[in-house]
Write a protein that binds this DNA or RNA. Structure first.
Lengths: 300, 300
DNA sequence: AAAATGTTTTTTCACGATAAAAGACATTAT
DNA sequence: ATAATGTCTTTTATCGTGAAAAAACATTTT
């Protein structure tokens, strides 16, 4: 098996959802941009849709014959890219098992365990190394640095520098800038979420990421924008493993975001700075409190 | 050819230089740590040294028979790792030829041109992507973002944030910290270089890197420390291609460093901040002035 | 002529295989 | 008993290969 066709399968599944909405599908190039794949893949998708009786396909005519059923979809797990599979496996090991700092990482073993080639694992590790959790010994193995308190502190230090600067840049943007409309939309979403927080609290992390990315983008600095990938990754896995007080935490965070948004809209740098600092401080606390390890010195 | 033995060749060359200094070589493990390679490689080296009559080797006895001659060394170009070869080729193309932003990068073409496998090129590009000069399109090619004025500004913005913070952390280090001795040593090297600047000006960039890395390390933040790799890489290639006023530039920079060092030694945060800002400002100017592109708007 | 479809070529992604290098284990020397 | 040497095993670095996917080119349709 030299390359899985997950791109095709994933696009096919997404393509199925389009069938509900229309009587006939658009042109191949159009479908390509819509699904984010090449025409080659679009044609494979259309072929299968024809074969399984979903559409009648004759050149430009792609008539929808029936609505897709559950069995028309490819199974979810077949639509993931290898990189995603490796990342999940790796993070599970890292967060679940004994992920002690200093432990060495074996490419071959990882590859065998996950059931993939070594090249894919190597490439994953190289990409992953920018998160600062692993490090390569020249001509030798990788070393796990560990998801430690030190790591969290270093991460949040940079985060705070970058976000304060981005927030300051944000308020300096002209009124015509599209970000203000984006911010208004996010504010509405926040208010909706706040009013239904009891049931929808688990939707917060996605909203959180979008909100912070919007702010970081105002820096117009690729290094700042890219750094948010590190934060997002950590928070993503962190929240999957630490569900303690999730509802309460998110409830607080939503309110902080609303205050932050209000400060941004006031365009008063001092208010923004204060609201931003307040939110970042509690975000830091949340992260730190989930990392045990901070062996307190016992008072004598 | 599945893997070049450049590790062996490079270590062999370095091993040859040890022969000048002693009458007999130390134990295999000791040589291993000295040369930074495994015992396996050490033994290959010793074998060859024996074969070519450089040493007599019998178990623990490794007697030096003669001094190494020029022809004993492996050619320099055979000691480079593939990654170094690829990086150089890539940077040459990027800085020399038409490196227009938006241009797409072709893995296969690059691999063919350099004469290496695609895997190595892929891995290089992934590693290189953290420098912010290229970007991957999902399931598709890489895109060159270009070494533009915008890039230089974004880079220096982060550099300045990080270095100011590191310098502030530096002065807060206790007197017992080893960094103060390191700083003293660097100061001496700076003074020596300053006094012979007319002939040794090209040695500055190496000293520059060591100095700034020392300061960044005081941040105790892996993201700050790692970011210096980006700066070092850019400056490294930048200086290879822009030799205009090299002597004058370096002369100024050495003096700025000395003032900066004096400020650090004074342990006065305000002075440090001022000296740091001054130096970073001129470093930024130097970098910016070498990037043409800043198409001036012609006065009407 | 512009945009779609049909066809062919090229590139990316991922694998297994192999030599270099590291590492582990067994044996011998101080 | 410790530390070296000798030997064997495992892992890393790199390549060539082939299928998936993209891209380029040619042809047809509106």
């Amino acid at each position: 098996m030299s390359k899985s066709n997950n791109v095709y399968k994933d696009a096919f599944n997404r393509g199925l959802r389009l069938l509900d909405e229309t009587r006939s599908l658009p042109s191949e190039p159009e479908l390509g941009t819509l699904l984010g794949v090449s025409r080659t893949t679009v044609r494979s998708i259309l072929s299968r849709m024809e074969e399984t009786g979903l559409i009648a396909w004759n050149k430009r005519n792609k008539t929808v014959l029936r609505a897709p059923k559950a069995e028309d979809f490819f199974p979810e797990e077949e639509t993931d890219s290898l990189a995603e599979i490796i990342e999940r496996s790796f993070m599970r090991r890292l967060l679940a098992g004994g992920a002690e700092a200093g432990m060495q990482i074996n490419e071959l073993e990882l590859a065998r365990e996950i059931g993939v080639g070594t090249t894919s694992v190597r490439e994953f590790l190289i990409r992953f190394s920018r998160f600062g959790l692993i490090e390569k010994r020249r001509n030798s193995h990788w070393v796990l640095k560990g998801f430690t308190r030190a790591f969290a502190l270093e991460l949040t230090e940079i985060r705070e520098m970058f976000e304060l600067r981005s927030a300051a840049a944000f308020v300096a943007l002209p009124q015509e800038s599209a970000v203000w409309a984006d911010l208004d939309r996010l504010e509405i979403e926040h208010r909706q979420l706040a009013s239904e927080i009891a049931t929808r609290f688990n939707e917060f992390s996605e909203l959180d990421e979008r909100f912070h990315r919007l702010i970081h983008r105002a820096s117009h600095n690729r290094f700042i924008v890219d750094f948010y990938d590190v934060i997002a990754m950590i928070f993503h896995y962190h929240y999957q493993w630490n569900k303690a007080q999730e509802r309460e935490r998110n409830e607080v965070a939503v309110q902080e975001h609303l205050a932050y948004i209000a400060a941004l809209k006031s365009r008063d740098p001092a208010k923004v700075d204060a609201a931003c600092r307040k939110h970042l401080k509690s975000a830091r606390q949340t992260l730190l409190s989930s990392i045990p390890e901070g062996r307190q010195v016992q008072p004598a």
